[in-house]
Simulated scan of single mutants.
Amino acid sequence: MGTDLDTLSPMSTTPALRGLAQVNIPADDVAATRDWYAQALGVQPYFQQPDAGSPAYVEFRLGDRRDELGIIDRRYLPSPEGHTGGGGIIARWHADDLEGMVAHLMSIGATEHEPITPRGDEGFVTASMLDPFGNILGLIHSPHFLEQL
């Protein structure tokens, strides 16, 4: 995933952010949070890692586009040091060139919130940045998002 500044240019025909790919909710008790959301949404998660008995991450697919709602153990999220906002949801935007997008955002004043992190061996990679105003901008390279197009 090299940097291609042409894809980040305002004149490009391919937008740098292609759509909301995933929303993550941090949880201290992933299983209890999963059960509450399953009841609230009327669906069961389709993915649980490492297993359903003691998950660190679960994911639901919702709506017509099968958008992803993930619940992640708070211990796997970056430390909130230096960030004054409350906790909550990290919405992740799909980026074809995640590394290039991170470099671009840093070049215009964003700082790293969560480093570029491969998630398993299926091509999912995440990162998050703090914009100059303290907001979290979540990024993901998601093979699932690309399959849906």
Rank of each mutant, 00 (worst) to 15 (best):
His94Thr: 03
Gln48Pro: 06
Gly120Trp: 10
Glu99Val: 00
Val43Ser: 09
Arg66Met: 08
Trp36Gln: 11
Ile116Met: 03
His104Asp: 07
Ser107Arg: 06
Tyr37Glu: 09
Asn24Gln: 12
Thr84Ala: 14
Tyr46Trp: 10
Ile71Val: 15
Gln22Pro: 00
Leu20Gln: 05
Arg119Ile: 15
Ala31Gly: 10
Glu99Met: 01
Glu81Phe: 10
Val30Ala: 09
Asp28Gly: 14
Ala31Tyr: 09
Ile71Trp: 07
Leu105Val: 03
Val43Glu: 13
Ile90Thr: 15
Gln49Ser: 15
Gly53Tyr: 07
Arg65Pro: 01
Leu77Gln: 14
Val43Leu: 04
Arg92Glu: 06
Thr14Cys: 02
Leu62Lys: 01
Pro80Gln: 14
Ala91Asn: 07
Ser54Met: 09
Ala91Arg: 01
Ser54Glu: 14
Glu59Tyr: 03
Pro55Cys: 07
Ile108Glu: 00
Pro78Trp: 09
His83Lys: 11
Ile72Glu: 12
Ser54Leu: 06
Gly100Pro: 10
Leu20Pro: 01
His113Gln: 12
Ile25Met: 15
Ala110Cys: 13
Ala110Gln: 01
Phe60His: 05
Asp51Glu: 14
Ala32Asn: 10
Pro115Phe: 01
Gly42Pro: 06
Asp121Tyr: 00
Asp67Arg: 04
Ala110Lys: 00
Val43Cys: 10
Asp96Phe: 03
Thr13Asn: 12
His94Glu: 01
Thr13Ala: 11
Glu59Phe: 02
Gly70Ala: 15
Phe60Val: 06
Thr111Trp: 02
Arg66Thr: 02
Thr84Lys: 11
Ile108His: 06
Arg61Tyr: 04
Gly63Ser: 08
Ala91Gln: 07
Tyr76Met: 14
Leu98Glu: 05
Tyr76Ile: 00
Tyr46Val: 13
Leu17Ser: 01
Leu69Arg: 06
Leu41Asn: 05
Ile108Asn: 02
Ile108Ala: 05
His83Gln: 12
Phe60Asn: 05
Gly109Leu: 01
Arg65Tyr: 05
Pro26Thr: 07
Ile90Arg: 13
Ser107His: 03
Ser79Ile: 06
Ala31Cys: 03
Gln44Gly: 07
Phe47Lys: 09
Ile25Arg: 12
Leu69Thr: 06
Glu114Met: 12
Pro78Gln: 11
Val102Ala: 00
Pro55Ser: 05
Ser79Lys: 14
Asp73Gln: 11
Gln39Val: 03
Ala31Leu: 15
Arg75Phe: 08
Ser54His: 14
Ala38Gly: 13
Tyr76Asn: 15
Met106Gln: 12
Glu59Asn: 09
Pro80Asn: 13
Asp67Ile: 04
